[in-house]
Design a protein around this nucleic acid. Structure first.
Length: 200
DNA sequence: CAAGAGATTAGG
DNA sequence: CTAATCTCTTGC
């Protein structure tokens, strides 16, 4: 059974549906509170915009896999691949709240307040000990790999705003987060234009 | 082949 | 504001 039907829509529709979901690895669990959507070859902001490279290969594969990449040469960031195989859409996991294995996560980030343990895409991976070795790991097939994802079973209130760290395609308002959650990142220049979208 | 920007974070 | 440092793109 290839992937979940929930992951098959366009990235900007799938992304908010992941909010409140739980990502697990080695006893540590993070409830996802902030995501960003990337559309692949039609999206100038996507790594896959200029075609396949060894790094972006996973994004062109089937949905439900993890796309991990090295950011600025030092931080690992993780995406969930969405959409049909052959497309390169993905959802970047930007931030979350540690809901299990807090003691383990604390050891990975000494001196940091609990609510900030996964406050940012690089930090989220550090809290979960996700590395480049997890690139391509199948999170949809629950239990087969080291990393698993549970989709949320209750609705959450969602806000949206422009994507962070990107100058390109500012018209795509594709960053989503759980309204009012203290663990969302955006610590840098928080976009002024922030609207709520109860209708999603 | 060399240079620079980028889905980041920590420290001054 | 800047350093640290990997991958890919663009320019010479």
């Amino acid at each position: 059974m290839p992937g979940w039907p929930e992951l098959l829509g366009p990235a900007e529709e799938v992304a908010p549906r992941l909010l409140g979901g739980v990502l697990r690895k080695d006893g540590v669990a993070v409830r996802i509170t902030e995501v960003e959507a990337y559309a692949g070859d039609t999206d100038p902001g996507s790594h896959a915009y200029r075609g396949r490279t060894p790094r972006t290969e996973v994004m062109f594969g089937p949905p439900g896999r993890l796309y991990c990449y090295l950011s600025y040469g030092m931080h690992v960031c993780a995406n969930v691949v969405v959409g049909e195989a052959g497309t390169a859409a993905a959802v970047l996991l930007r931030a979350g709240e540690v809901v299990d294995g807090v003691d383990v996560a604390r050891k990975r980030r000494p001196g940091v307040a609990d609510r900030q343990l996964a406050r940012g895409p690089g930090l989220l991976c550090r809290a979960l000990a996700i590395s480049l070795d997890d690139d391509g790991s199948d999170v949809a097939d629950h239990g087969s790999g080291p990393v698993t994802l549970d989709l949320p079973n209750e609705a959450v209130e969602i806000s949206r705003g422009p994507r962070t760290g990107l100058r390109l395609a500012p018209d795509r308002v594709w960053r989503f987060w759980i309204t009012g959650d203290p663990s969302v990142s955006g610590h840098r220049r928080h976009p002024a234009a922030v609207r709520e979208t109860p209708g999603l």
